[in-house]
Amino acid sequence: MENTQFKKLLKFNGDHAQLIGLRIMNNILTVISLGFYYPWAKTAYLKYIYGETEFMESRFTFHGTGKEVFVGFLKAMGLILALYAILFACIFSQSIAAILIGVLIFVVAMLMIVPVAIHGSNRYRLSRTSWRGIHFGYRGNLNEFIKLYLVETLLTMVTFGIYASWMQTKIISYIRSNTRFGNVEFRFDGRGVDLFLIKLKGILLMMVTFGIYSFWYFKNIVAFHIDNTKVIQNGKEINLRTTLSGGQIFAMLITNYLIVIFTLGIGTGIAINRIMREFLGSIEFDNEIDTTTLVQTEEEYKNAMGDDLAGFLDISII
């Protein structure tokens, strides 16, 4: 392979005043509406984040609407309430068999909700994201993904968590390989053993350095995710890498922490902008995407239930 030149194609433009204003509005409206504004707040925030992100000099667009997220929010809430209703009905029946069955249903359902949420969230978010009019998409199969998730969880449990790195890698790999951007495909080459070694080294060095190593550990995790992601267009591979250094993360997080504390949280918007700027600004590509052959392939998908479930479960998806 010839010696390739890496260049920065991503840029985050976020404006502090705008994000602070947005967050304050979102907070106020969410509080006075007793939480019902949340779907609209979330959409406004995502529109901001995507809209401020620039790739090859064009912005991304998030097409989701508050209404979609609200409907998803109701469905997700209904599902979780129904599960609790079954559980409590079984408990109040006072028959041992019913209680056992109820708890079993609850635990199994809760285990299955996580992959359902990850799947749904990816489908919704990616489908509602576009760049230069070309939509992203997710083609993962739900049954396949649930099976993968449950088997991997089981393996992680029987190995007392040691297998977790392999599980994580397999799941990222599944999601990446099913992600589409028009006719552009993705692949994740990270190996479980590499992630495991990063974590092992991280734990050992953090103990020795009283946690100071955590910034460098964080850098390794970010690099593991970015450097192993490949973008494939017309059979041609584009490689990614991050130039983020541990020192950079250290300086950024410390100053962010101070900003957040001394503004009593109002400056959190500044911290978010700074993180996005450093993070996206650190990613480099060894080739551009060919826009003339980047064609629309994905269909529209508007079901936000999975995304809301993921929100309840605190699963974060970029």
Binding site: D15, G51, R59, T61, R132
Partner: peptide, 23 residues
């Protein structure tokens, strides 16, 4: 369908899916 301003960039979406776009 939708139009949004972020910073000094305006994106306008038009028509049925897949939308036409102006930037």
């Amino acid at each position: 369908v939708d139009y949004n301003m972020n910073g000094d960039v305006l994106i306008v979406k038009y028509g049925d899916f897949p939308h036409q776009t102006l930037e």
